[in-house]
Simulated scan of single mutants.
Amino acid sequence: MSDSTTERSVSGHVKWFDPARGFGFVVSDEGGADILLHANVLRVFGQSTVADAARITLTVQDTDRGIQAINVLAIEPPETSSGPSLEDLEHLKVTDLDVPLVPSRVKWFDKSKGFGFANIFGDGEDIFVHVEVLRRSGLADLMPGEAIALRVIDGRRGRMAAQVVPWDAAARDTPEFEHVQAEHIDEDA
């Protein structure tokens, strides 16, 4: 029987994660057995999905069933692209990501098509969301009705997301976002 009380920090990359199945696996930089990443552990961090190949830092423990993640400490988007390219993002500058986060809700997203749309709270205008933007944001999929935060830019074909941030992460990591989200939620009421 292994010692399930020993916790340690591990860095690695996401091998795969399937939100429909509720789990995935992480490969440690140190090698060894794959690490189970359960959807509940990811949700506590504030995300419902994570992109394949994303860098991740976890607290893990050994159990009778193998190594399991018990806490997500950090996630960084994958370094290389494996999905379809998006011409609007080819010339994206770091300064384009200086626009404020805006609270939004997913209208629909089809991973197999590679895109979907979201709406900013209080505004019916559709904001285009490309799967490559999700990947660059460290996410793999979006669900209809899911609350998110977007950095929106004017693309060649209209308004589009340049970055997608999970709602919980935006509220936790962006001090000014709490004030902004309260304004937009009041407008929707």
Rank of each mutant, 00 (worst) to 15 (best):
T59Y: 00
E87A: 11
P78W: 00
P84M: 03
L101H: 14
D98F: 13
D110M: 04
G46D: 01
K93T: 15
P84G: 05
P78A: 00
A74G: 02
R43S: 04
S112Y: 03
L101P: 07
F109C: 02
T63D: 02
S48G: 13
G114M: 05
D62K: 09
G114T: 03
A51K: 06
V102I: 13
A53T: 11
T95C: 05
A39V: 15
T80Y: 01
F45Q: 02
L86N: 14
V106N: 12
A74D: 15
F117K: 07
K111I: 11
T57R: 14
L97A: 10
K107F: 12
F109K: 00
R105G: 07
E76S: 08
A69E: 11
A69K: 10
P77R: 03
D88F: 03
T63W: 02
P78E: 01
N119P: 02
P84Y: 02
A53R: 15
K113Q: 12
S81T: 01
V94T: 14
A74E: 14
L92D: 01
D88W: 06
D96Q: 11
P77I: 01
A54H: 07
T59P: 00
T95Y: 03
S104V: 10
L97P: 07
T59M: 01
F117W: 02
T95D: 10
P84S: 05
L36V: 13
G116L: 04
V41D: 02
K93D: 15
A51N: 05
S81Y: 05
G83H: 05
E76W: 00
I120F: 09
E90A: 13
R55H: 09
S85Q: 11
W108H: 13
D98Y: 11
T57F: 00
L58S: 03
V72I: 12
L86G: 07
I35D: 03
H91R: 10
H38L: 12
E79D: 07
I56D: 04
D110Q: 10
S85P: 04
T95L: 07
V99L: 10
P84D: 09
F45K: 04
T95F: 06
V72E: 11
R55I: 01
G46L: 00
R43I: 04
A54M: 06
D88R: 05
L42I: 06
A54R: 09
P84K: 11
I70G: 08
V41K: 06
